[in-house]
Design a protein around this nucleic acid. Structure first.
Lengths: 177, 177
DNA sequence: AGACCATACCTCGCCATCGAGGTACCCCGC
DNA sequence: GCGGGGTACCTCGATGGCGAGGTATGGTCT
């Protein structure tokens, strides 16, 4: 879902489709480059929903461009999704990173901290990729280096993020006063 | 795409749909629980493609079960996808982890090392989520803690995985010799 | 003048996924 | 003997992403 990312980038300033695509490519293009067949229909959906408007301008170097502007409803929709993200935005790393990229737009330390706490709760659940019955299996239990690596990497990632989460929450709670 | 995971689990031993779902939930259910509407059509597609067969058995505790068995074509398809994964399997963390979970089935240290080297190349590309023109921006350049965190966490994750990759490649190359 | 490339946008058909809904069976407790 | 819960499977419609294809413009190189 690119809805969040599109609204997030347009919140800062109006962009035309091509610029938007460059921003989106930087944000998540290393995983999978965004295709025209994804971007333009997504823009159209947002326009139909009244979240953005298009203004045609003569192209600076080519065909006429449609500059995209967020409407008030669009700004509200972005802030809503930042304030109360779906669970998938919390649990999926790609979506979570997208959310993080725009969380500063939510200009309220208490609301920001609440979102971080949801991620903290998710990361704190004991989880493995493999179970022996109900018992989560640890890295040491696998003879092959691949599953062992999978678990070790996941653990390292979680540790790093937990450290950052705790530090940032402390900082935000200071500001909440 | 659950094709890889389904084939991977069945490679070890035949399972019926319900068991399969429990395995898939453990592997990737923390991100998004797998739904029936995904699993059963996926099984049917694999059956139609001749990669697995179903044998109906009386249900042990309920309705009759369909035990799923990989065919020779199914085993070959799994090994193919492990040996020459699509780029998305390399670049997307969720897919990469799925691949890692079954890479041991590819019983050839040279081929395994080649796959790890593709991931290594992907992680070694200089990348950021944000660019100033063509210059990738570093964590220090953002005043908000969220984008800073995003970049710091990504960096920590990459470091951890690079360490494991180098160690495992050395181990595999020892075995190739 | 012509070829070529980057910019800029759009559409179509395909396919995977999802949620909601449904069927059926068996066991256990009351 | 009846209801509820867990096991086990299936289908349907909606949605969203993707690849392939198409259009058009303007600058640059030869």
């Amino acid at each position: 879902m690119f809805k969040l990312a599109i609204l997030g980038f347009l919140y800062d300033r109006p962009l035309h489709g091509y610029e938007l695509r460059r921003h989106l490519s930087a944000l998540s293009g290393h995983v999978q480059p965004i295709s025209d067949g994804t971007l333009y229909p997504a823009i159209k959906r947002l326009e139909t929903a009244g979240l953005l408007t298009r203004r045609t301008e003569p192209g600076s170097a080519a065909a006429p461009r449609h500059t995209l502007h967020l409407t008030e409803a669009g700004r509200a929709a972005l802030l809503d999704q930042l304030r109360e993200p779906e669970q998938l935005d919390i649990s999926d790393e790609n979506r979570w990173f997208t959310l993080l990229a725009f969380l500063r737009h939510l200009d309220d330390p208490t609301a920001q901290a609440a979102v971080l706490r949801r991620r903290l709760a998710f990361l704190s659940e004991p989880a493995s990729f493999f179970y022996d019955g109900d018992r989560p299996m640890g890295a040491e239990e696998f003879p092959d280096p691949f599953r062992r690596g999978q678990l070790l990497i996941a653990r390292a990632t979680t540790e790093a993020e937990l450290g950052w989460l705790h530090a940032t929450l402390a900082e935000l709670e200071g500001r909440e006063g």
